[in-house]
Design a protein around this nucleic acid. Structure first.
Lengths: 116, 116
DNA sequence: TATTAATATACGGATAATCATATATAAAAA
DNA sequence: TTTTTATATATGATTATCCGTATATTAATA
């Protein structure tokens, strides 16, 4: 089970924090959607997602060629308010406005909020 | 001003997390009190307190030979619920029970909750 | 089967974090 | 003034983190 210190380490990097924030907003996203939305390289996103998966913070599920990530719904209770407040903190400080509408226009698969 | 990622990095280490938790419970403690309460070396505690001070999370104030630390009361608003929830998380997961009564018996100065 | 698209991982380098130990500094006490 | 107490910091070693680049893997498509 994840410890508080481990949990905070997961949130201690901008890329991870932005991934988690997007996943909390959108529910489920594949790697290429996060890559597009955050304008970062695919290996960089994949590595951070892998570390969050290894900590138990995220779950992954393959659907064909895509691998979708979501926040693990079975996290310990004490993480819930922290994730909610972390999301609010990120949004209240960074100009963290992903233009989701623009990205939706680029979508090439129906079930996806963003593109690949 | 501290960023969310920086803030979470401050909370990503057990020693720092325990210092912050104790300071939140007790208000103001000197280095030797934290050293005694957490049973860790003085340089280790001092180094972590210095890093938290440099991030703006803690304030220090010298009183004679003692240096007291406290949580900076002027932190941005978004940090307040996070600190409260972090404290609860630490207490709900770790067997983080400092025997304050025992430590008070060792006190050798009236204004201090713990000893030196 | 060959190719493409999506994802993961290995590799090497750069930087940061952490610690134990030793030493420096500052204030109080002898 | 010497010593003691409390605290800070320097040093060197070890380990961890982060990244770009290259490559491997998996599934879909031509």
């Amino acid at each position: 089970m994840i410890s508080p210190a481990q949990f905070f380490k997961c949130l201690s990097d901008d890329t991870r924090l932005r991934c988690i924030t997007l996943l909390q907003q959108e529910g489920k996203l594949c790697v290429c959607e996060l890559t597009t939305a955050l304008e970062l390289s695919q290996p960089k996103i994949s590595r951070h997602l892998a570390s969050l998966r290894q900590c138990g913070l995220l779950l992954d599920s393959r659907e064909g060629q895509w691998v979708f990530y979501q926040i693990n719904p079975s996290l310990p209770d004490w993480t819930t308010p922290l994730l909610v407040n972390a999301l609010q903190a990120v949004q209240s400080t960074e100009s963290f406005k992903i233009d989701l509408q623009r990205l939706k226009k680029m979508a090439n698969r129906p079930d996806s909020a963003l593109c690949c």
